[in-house]
Nucleic acid binder design. Structure first.
Lengths: 218, 218
DNA sequence: TGATCTTGTCTCACATAATGAGACAAGATT
DNA sequence: AATCTTGTCTCATTATGTGAGACAAGATCA
């Protein structure tokens, strides 16, 4: 369960249920365990979500993410033109560096991966689309926090900060002087070296410029 | 707003809000108009959803689908192994017929498109991933309703039934004697002719068998 | 075999928690 | 300056969601 509060209890509980189902809970009692809610409450709320297609149940009565979420997820992706427009630059960046490239946007106190281009290597960084990461960690985190030092330099790098063994370099995508997104390359330190910036900073910044141009940001 | 009731009012309202935002409502009053809910209620509920990332607001305070939905949508897709496994057969079917191919599963009194392979033609059928269609219409609807006549024949066809000008042929994907999905080709009647079955039935049924094989259904 | 868990489900008395009319400030139009 | 229209907030009211507990049906035990 994620502990956020919203002022509307039912919504908190319903979202906790969605998160629990997303994270693989299948049986009623698993949902109860994961959310900490009383069983009848889980049952009733889950039933309500099922009625709306946000949760579904298979023939064994297992709870699963509802198919309605597919369309909602699509709508969310499409509501962010930046993600669509960044796809090409991301792929170029991936091809130029050989490493996985991602686009992140800030979301409250976290950051969300909204576009990816995966490295062809067998050993590569994988950040699932939609993944919510810690805003306090990683080079993309530093960018999205709009750290003055980072903005002055035009990029940020990190080694094993968010996850051991992976290094990354990120650059801000700017709209005027506002950071609207962070574009990153990341890969295993074995390939990227302990000073990934030296190798990748230029390419990442170029990609950021490409995204800005494609998005028509001045 | 979709008028479904679930027994938990707050959930109904929250879902109505998600639907409204999905369908493009951007301002508070648009949400009010679309859902029929009182303004303070919309405001409070929307704020709650924003706190959880299911809705987001841009710098102009417009309401937009929340990025959290991206991950949930992914989870929903992945929870349906059939969709992943059907991708190849769908593409083969598309290539064999030149028309768009879709996989539908039943969801309550509707049907949801869970996988697609789009025709290369300029004029083609487009069914967005996650789209919820009428179970009562179209050849895929007949399949998912498990109509005896359809099951006996092994396929269904329709011309201009769900949407004027488009014809389709669908076959059931079976698990034992249970219909678990419908696989379809559809295109403009100008190309498919008024008797699409003659041309496509065999290919669609073959695709259904391929999906069953790939999914390990006996 | 019968006893004991553990499922999912449902009811219902209770008070928490959501409600929504109304008021407010701040822009935008007039 | 007067009038809409935004988004936002409060607060008295009670509708609404709550969850302990009971139930039936399997599963697993002895």
């Amino acid at each position: 369960m994620d502990g956020r509060l919203s002022g509307v209890g039912v919504v908190d509980k319903a979202v906790a249920l969605l998160a629990a189902v997303e994270s693989g809970a299948r049986t009623l009692n698993e949902l109860v365990g994961l959310t900490g809610l009383p069983r009848p409450t889980v049952h009733r709320l889950a039933a309500a979500l099922v009625a709306h297609g946000l949760i579904r149940r298979d023939e064994e009565l297992h709870y699963l993410p509802g198919l309605r979420l597919i369309a909602l997820g699509r709508a969310a992706s499409q509501s962010l033109p930046l993600a669509r427009v960044a796809q090409r630059p991301l792929e170029d960046l991936r091809d130029a560096t050989g490493e996985s490239a991602q686009l992140y946007v800030r979301e409250g106190e976290g950051r969300v991966c909204v576009a990816v281009a995966e490295s062809p290597h067998g050993l590569r960084t994988i950040v699932p689309l939609g993944a919510v990461l810690d805003l306090r960690r990683g080079s993309a985190g530093a960018v999205l926090r709009a750290e003055p030092a980072v903005l002055a330099r035009g990029f940020a790098d990190s080694v094993g900060e968010r996850e051991p063994g992976v290094a990354s370099v990120s650059a801000p995508v700017l709209h005027g002087d506002r950071v609207v997104a962070a574009i990153s390359v990341s890969g295993p330190v074995e390939r990227t070296s302990r000073e990934p910036a030296r190798r990748y900073a230029a390419a990442v910044m170029a990609a950021a410029r490409a995204v800005e141009a494609a998005a028509g940001l001045r």
